[in-house]
Amino acid sequence: MREVKLPAMLKQLVDEGEYRGNRRWVSTQLGITPAALSQYINGQTNPSLEKLLAMIELFDVSLDFLVFGPDTIGQHANAEAEAVTASIQADIATHSALVGKVGEILAQQIDAATRSVAKRPSTLSNMLDQKQALELERYSEDSTIVTMDLTDDIVEVDSEQEVTAGDFLTVVAQNLAQGRTYHFVLSPEMEDHDTLIQRYRTLLLDQHLSEADLRNCRFSIGLDSFYVGCCLFRLDVDGLKRHSPVLHRYLESFITHDNYIGYIEPPSSPLRAYFLLDADRMQVATRVLERLAPPSSSSS
């Protein structure tokens, strides 16, 4: 099976070709944010079929070149390459046909939900993908986030250390604007906590928040090392059920009687998947959190 080189090829086309230094322009042409483009280049997320097609049109390259690199042009023009290309084309055709049929039969709301689900990578039972985790956090009234880094929130745009807000930071800003609260517990292994916290606060202010809003977002440094990230949310269950009923049905058995839910992120997760906590493990996570960051340890 050939090696997928999409991140490396995308970086070469964006940073070393005629578009060098114009990531923002490229992002605009692809209909994505600079943060999303950086995540594609860093291999943190994968583009949808729609965005792959936009890329090959913008850069005027073949799908085979974009996904597998230049060494496949002459050396691998064989049955394997044809099968992979045919499979991708079949997926695109199937997806388009499905969307058309659903649009004819179902209401607009269900059609939109179907297309959204169809674009997500599959995950195992009792897990969340990144889009589901983002959607869940939108309904958190009080969030505790234990993290080893903030790369999903603060995304580097270029080599000059320019940064922009990632998808998760945008949700944090939306929740803070509604008077909701956040507590970030940072790993003691992270470098230069003060600079990182200040950078995070600056990006929040860029989201049109006030200093008063930021008082609901505090940071602590863990009193001991940890190697697994964890999120605990107190949910607006009624809002989740009303506005995201499919996700609510999936998560219903994991929501505690007092409306809490939690998940962990392994230190290395190529699926970008998050593991949901049952009631017993929620209690364990809460006790561990109390040891890592008791109220007196808050730094800001």
Rank of each mutant, 00 (worst) to 15 (best):
M1F: 08
M1C: 10
P7W: 13
R20N: 03
R23E: 06
W25E: 09
V26F: 01
S27C: 05
I32K: 10
A35H: 05
A36D: 02
Q39Y: 04
Y40F: 11
N42P: 02
T45C: 06
N46S: 13
L52Y: 06
M55C: 07
L66W: 13
F68K: 00
G69F: 07
P70W: 06
H76W: 12
A77V: 06
N78S: 08
A79F: 11
A83E: 09
I92F: 06
A93E: 11
T94K: 01
S96C: 04
L106K: 05
Q109M: 03
I110G: 04
D111C: 15
A112S: 10
A112F: 01
R115K: 13
S116V: 02
A118P: 00
R120L: 15
R120K: 14
P121N: 08
P121R: 09
D129T: 03
K131W: 01
K131R: 10
Q132S: 06
E141M: 14
S143W: 04
V146W: 09
T147Y: 07
M148S: 12
D149T: 05
D149N: 14
T151A: 11
E156Y: 14
V157M: 11
V157D: 00
V157A: 08
Q161T: 10
V163L: 11
T164V: 14
G166F: 08
F168P: 00
T170K: 12
A177C: 03
Y182A: 04
F184A: 03
F184R: 03
L186T: 01
S187M: 09
P188W: 00
P188M: 03
E191C: 02
D194G: 07
T195I: 00
L196M: 14
Q198T: 10
Q198C: 05
L205K: 12
D206E: 15
Q207R: 09
E211W: 05
R215G: 07
S220F: 01
I221P: 03
I221D: 00
L223E: 13
C231K: 15
L232Q: 00
G239Y: 09
K241N: 03
R242C: 08
L247W: 02
H248S: 09
F254A: 03
T256N: 12
H257M: 04
D258M: 04
I261A: 11
Y263T: 02
P270N: 02
L271W: 09
D278S: 07
A279L: 03
Q283L: 12
T286D: 15
A293Y: 11
A293F: 10
S298R: 15
S298E: 13
